[in-house]
Amino acid sequence: MFDSLDEELKAAVCTWESRPGGWQTLQFDSGTWDDADLPALVEWSMASACVAEVSDSDLALVTGLNATGQRWQTWLNLDIAARLLAEEPEDLEDQLLWLETPEFHDAVRHRHAELDAEIPTDAEGAVVWAAASGIRVTPQTVRIEELLRSHETPVENLFSTLLDELGFPPGR
């Protein structure tokens, strides 16, 4: 898959962290990865894959997919995600003014509660994905839930810890 990339795009990819057992962690420059690339990567590699789309080291949307099509997704750093995903009023005129209103803070609390309620399902999806990936260690779902509720930054470290906790061999 990566052999077919043009030279400019190849230059935007670097190895981030090697993991035993042939697992690779790559880092792409912003804007070079698309969600539609994940199924192509899984098909090409015939192995599970997981992507963390990181924003300013404060927020990440993590998506995993295995060869059978089982997919899971979660956010890292719910506080930032809730702010980003808070529903804005349809008649919003000035987003900067909106950010200072009690209504914005209520919308953030509401969205945070929704995201938090999804964590047990997200954690279970991650564990099922890891098991389908051939990982022999049984991850602790409670520990995965704790990680998904973490506010740790940079989220790159949190993502690496998530992979560790899912049973992937620790990086070198």
Rank of each mutant, 00 (worst) to 15 (best):
P139I: 05
A52Y: 11
S18H: 07
L41N: 01
D56H: 11
Q24Y: 06
A12E: 12
W129P: 11
P20R: 00
A52M: 06
G31N: 13
D94W: 04
A107W: 02
S30H: 04
E93M: 07
S57I: 03
L96K: 13
Q27W: 01
A11Y: 02
A126G: 15
L61R: 11
P89V: 03
D106G: 05
V51P: 01
G125T: 08
R143M: 09
A113T: 15
H112A: 00
W23I: 07
E88H: 00
L85A: 02
Q27M: 05
A60H: 03
F28M: 09
G64H: 00
P154F: 10
G125S: 02
L115E: 01
G22K: 01
D91A: 05
P120C: 10
H110E: 09
L163M: 15
V42S: 08
G171E: 12
P102T: 11
T63F: 00
V137F: 07
E87H: 13
I80T: 13
P169H: 01
F28Q: 00
L166P: 14
L5R: 08
V51K: 05
L92P: 07
H112Q: 06
G171N: 12
R109E: 12
R136G: 14
T63A: 08
Q140R: 12
L99V: 02
E7P: 04
E93W: 07
L26T: 04
G167W: 02
D37C: 01
G125N: 07
N157Q: 09
D164L: 02
D106A: 14
S57R: 13
A132Q: 14
K10P: 00
Q70F: 15
